[in-house]
Design a protein around this nucleic acid. Structure first.
Lengths: 123, 123
DNA sequence: ATATGTGCAAACTCTTTGCATGGAG
DNA sequence: CTCCATGCAAAGAGTTTGCACATAT
């Protein structure tokens, strides 16, 4: 299970340490190439998956496209998705007793709350 | 803007009238072919989009794959997604004041609450 | 020295589109 | 009889995988 510390992997980790919101693979590639220009999309996909398996990143499945990733270390929170620029932002509040909404017979493991609208930059 | 009442379109509408949860295009195809065996995937995609544009279906963007569709006439509700069978179910309760969770500067238009876990059939 | 990681390109999956044929009006 | 709708197959977008080369250890 030897993990090598390549420039590419460093760059990708650096990208996530610099932002406070979930990123799409595209966003990771663009920001990563600012650090390692030769960085390829396949490497991004392989590494975010790897870092997620290791528990360093968390997968965030927001509607409207594919998976996004963010630092796993962040405390419980939810997301706001801007319908204009498609960026996702963190929301640090959580409605109480959400998980009690499930009907009897359903076993709840987790929950997600997503707000849609326009972010300050797009209003 | 003449809409023709084809067997295929009837079949697709019939499929949605028979279920009380959001369906993926795949699920629509499978159930639709029980009514019109020759039904093709392209027709499913074209018609759910059409019915959604007309306001008869609502698009439901749940994580884990593409768009799902359900009858637009249903009252406000949220969803439970089973991690085992990937089916989505309706939940007819909604936490209060969800939309007030957004930080200042964010303009909320809409919200979605998703519970993850195992449905009764998969527990 | 060795085997993991990278980059490219091909393969895949899901969705959309072009085109000839079919069928509703 | 007209067009809109369908079915097929090809084209796109996003993601994954195979393979030869590069490089961290």
């Amino acid at each position: 299970m030897g993990r090598r510390d390549t420039r590419q992997r460093q760059a990708i980790r650096g990208v996530f340490l610099d932002v406070d919101r979930p990123l799409t693979p595209d966003e990771v590639l663009e920001r990563g190439q600012a650090r390692v220009p030769s960085l390829g999309m396949a490497t991004v996909y392989r590494n975010v998956k790897l870092l997620a398996d290791e528990g360093w990143l968390a997968e965030v499945e927001l509607p409207g496209g594919g998976m996004r990733y963010e630092l796993a270390a962040r405390p419980h929170h939810h997301h706001f998705v801007c319908r204009s620029c498609d960026q996702a932002f963190d929301i640090h509040r959580c409605p109480e007793s959400v998980e009690e909404m499930a009907p009897a017979g359903f076993e709840v493991e987790d929950h997600e709350v997503i707000l849609y609208g326009r972010c300050p930059a797009c209003v």
